[in-house]
């Protein structure tokens, strides 16, 4: 019974795209600040407990490795969840193809060569509906896109609660001097609008970010920042904060290293039907450099 529940929770956590429930999904770039001609980065992508160790499941990304050979991300026999769609945006706004993609038991990995000077953004964004209902006294769950809902949920479903989920995971990388083009928000879901450039983070200095929901400043966003390397720490070292009325958050980095930032917002007002609740999440892997 306990196991079933655990798997159900895990399956849910993994299926809710990039959800942080119980596990953390992340991409880890080999470097975020680069010099020289057309440098490369290599990126690991995984779903794990500890940051940034691949110890649980690979992040399934469309086009990265042989997905049909890879673990589904849950109990044996589980139907694999749809692979995430990765966007690699170059400083001029064009899209690049990741190279040398592979998926293993614990992680996906791919490379990106950076042909232009400026800031690149790697992004995985998802939007979908999650429905809970009961049918013939049995609790059911469903996940999918809005236009599939009517077909998927039986007409006699009871206690139907539909939640809109938006998630976004980002990594920023700069070759040469930082640029702004890729930082422009898309206006969908929960996003981070940098005031401090995300590749200009230094230990002991404060960085300011603005959180936006559908392009508008979002107040009261819960933000958690965790330094990587917690496998060898007794304390998580989490920095918790909330966005102010203008969506602003200020974070002072205690030490250099890779950090995992996660932001979440749940609302029940002004939610598009048939959803009555909305849950939006954002995460980013940020590198803080030494003084």
């Amino acid at each position: 019974m306990k196991m079933t529940y655990k798997w159900a929770a895990l399956t849910l956590a993994l299926c809710l795209p990039l959800s942080a429930q119980a596990h953390r999904a992340w991409m880890l770039p080999s470097a975020t600040v680069l010099s020289g001609d057309e440098p490369w980065i290599s990126v690991d992508a995984a779903v794990s407990n500890d940051l940034f160790y691949f110890e649980h499941f690979p992040l399934r990304i469309a086009g990265i490795g042989a997905l049909d050979q890879a673990p589904a991300g849950g109990p044996p026999g589980m139907r694999p969840r749809p692979a995430a769609v990765l966007q690699v945006l170059a400083p001029d706004g064009s899209q690049l193809q990741p190279r040398n993609g592979a998926i293993g038991r614990y992680r996906s990995t791919f490379d990106v060569q950076l042909p232009l000077k400026g800031t690149y953004k790697l992004a995985i964004a998802n939007q979908g509906l999650f429905a809970r209902y009961s049918e013939n006294g049995e609790n059911k769950r469903w996940m999918g896109k809005a236009d599939e809902l009517a077909k998927a949920i039986p007409a006699d479903a009871k206690d139907l609660v539909v939640t809109q989920n938006d998630s976004r995971m980002e990594v920023f990388v700069t070759s040469g001097a930082p640029s702004e083009t890729v930082l422009k928000p898309t206006g969908k879901g929960l996003e981070l609008k940098p005031v401090t450039h995300p590749n200009d983070l230094f230990a002991g200095e404060a960085a300011t970010f603005i959180f936006l929901l559908d392009g508008k400043p979002a107040a009261d966003v819960e933000v958690s920042v965790i330094p990587g390397g917690n496998r060898y720490r007794d304390q998580l070292g989490e920095i918790k904060t909330r966005s102010d009325a203008n969506g602003h958050v200020s974070i002072t980095w205690p030490s250099p290293g890779m950090y995992w930032l996660e932001a979440e917002l749940s609302i029940s007002e002004n939610v598009a039907k048939p959803a009555t609740e909305r849950r939006a999440s954002y995460s980013a892997t940020l590198e803080v450099l030494p003084q």
Binding site: A31, V33, L34, S35, G36, D37, P39
Partner: peptide
């Protein structure tokens, strides 16, 4: 060669 030394300037 190929200005490879600039890779480490960062």
């Amino acid at each position: 060669a190929d200005a490879e030394g600039e890779k480490w300037l960062k």
